[in-house]
Computed example of a mutant assay.
Amino acid sequence: MDTEALRSFVRAAELGQFQHAADELGVTQQAVSKRIAALERELQVRLFTRTPRGVEPTLDGQAFLPHARSIVASVERAVTAVRPGSRALRIDVLGLRSAQAVVLHDYWRSHPEVDLDVVTLRADDPRVAVAAVEAGDVDASFRTVTDPAVLPPDVCMMHAFDSPLELLVGPGHPLASARELRPSQLRKHRIWVPGIAAGSEWAEFYDQLVTHFDLRIDAAGPHFGDEVLLDALADSSDVATLVGARDRYLWPEDHDLRRIPLVNPTLAYPLSLILPRTNPHPGLRGIITHLGNLPRPHGAVWRPSWSATP
């Protein structure tokens, strides 16, 4: 099996576009398409389906992806074993606009000499990320296993930083003019968070948030992407959502969306870093130091019960 075809498949699946994969691999989009077409012929299945925004793995593609990623990682480790130096520090984040990616970008801007590879595993189950760290497919992952007792003995988890939540609303929402809000002021307001995946760390976070503050979290419907969510907020007078203070969102100027801090207490989403217990990538030392120097929320703070942060 052609390892370059496997590498093209993995990067296209992770980046969502053949062109982006081609740019990263230093080849043409046509070359990526031909490699993947040859791989599909060999496997006798379709690996991708086209969408308005690019491509997404089919069910067969999703099933094949972790195995292809493991093969590519094994080949890279084999090459590294006989080549001077080491490969880039590879860290998994939930999304390229997430708080984790923003924090890593800030670190890289002040340390541009660091060879950093930021990837997204596209998995809701944190156990997938744990397995990727354990196998060496990634060097670390910004995921949380809410029961650390289930971690394998050769993998550990540390608190990375807290992500304070903000309310995001359109200009017609009754809370739009507030400069800050207490969680109690959100009661009876519809907070739409589509696509909460069962078994994910954020599903447990929202369950505890609802119970503790008597909030109305609506997870109905699939998540069609940030653009659709932002469009809905701009047009609505009664729908809001929750976002992390460091999460990067972009919307048209005429949407006039408002980000409102939540205080007294601050609602903090605790982010963790999963990494090998022994012989972690040397580049992680600088990242961990950077995380430790990030500012912490002030005043009263609410965190879920599984957070290890005091």
Rank of each mutant, 00 (worst) to 15 (best):
P276S: 09
V45W: 05
P261H: 12
L186V: 04
T211Q: 08
I191C: 00
P304K: 11
G136L: 08
R277N: 02
I71Y: 12
P148H: 09
I217K: 01
A234S: 12
T3L: 15
V45T: 15
V93L: 03
A101T: 05
R41L: 12
F213E: 01
P183S: 07
V150E: 08
D92I: 02
A240D: 00
T3R: 14
R41W: 09
V119C: 04
L215F: 10
G221P: 07
F18G: 05
P66A: 11
D231R: 04
L59G: 08
D117W: 09
L43T: 09
S141D: 02
M158L: 12
L165V: 06
P84V: 11
E166D: 08
A38I: 10
T144Y: 09
A5L: 13
V32N: 04
S305T: 15
S307C: 15
A12S: 15
F224Y: 07
P276G: 06
V118D: 00
R7P: 05
L267K: 01
V169D: 00
L284T: 09
M158Q: 07
G221M: 07
H173Y: 01
I196W: 00
R83I: 08
H290W: 11
I71G: 02
G244C: 00
T266Y: 05
D2V: 12
A22G: 15
T146D: 00
L257R: 13
V133W: 05
E113D: 10
L181V: 13
I260A: 07
Q100I: 07
P304R: 02
P52M: 10
V75D: 06
A101K: 00
A5G: 15
S70D: 10
D256N: 12
H290I: 04
A99C: 05
L215C: 11
P148E: 06
A240H: 00
T49N: 12
L6F: 08
L104M: 08
E113H: 06
A240S: 08
V93Y: 01
H223C: 01
Y249D: 04
S8N: 12
T3S: 15
I36L: 10
E201C: 01
C156M: 13
H223L: 03
P252L: 05
V210W: 01
D214G: 14
H223F: 13
V82E: 10
V130P: 02
N279K: 13
Y269N: 03
E204L: 11
P280H: 07
I71T: 13
S200I: 06
Q30Y: 14
L15A: 10
E227L: 09
L233A: 02
H159D: 14
V79I: 12
L43M: 15
A101N: 09
S98R: 01
R303K: 12
P164K: 02
C156E: 14
T144N: 13
T51C: 06
A5T: 13
L209D: 00
S307Q: 04
E134N: 13
L215H: 06
G172I: 01
P171M: 06
R69H: 14
L257A: 14
P282R: 12
V119K: 05
A300M: 04
L167S: 01
S74R: 09
F9K: 07
P265V: 05
P297H: 09
V10H: 06
T144W: 04
L104N: 05
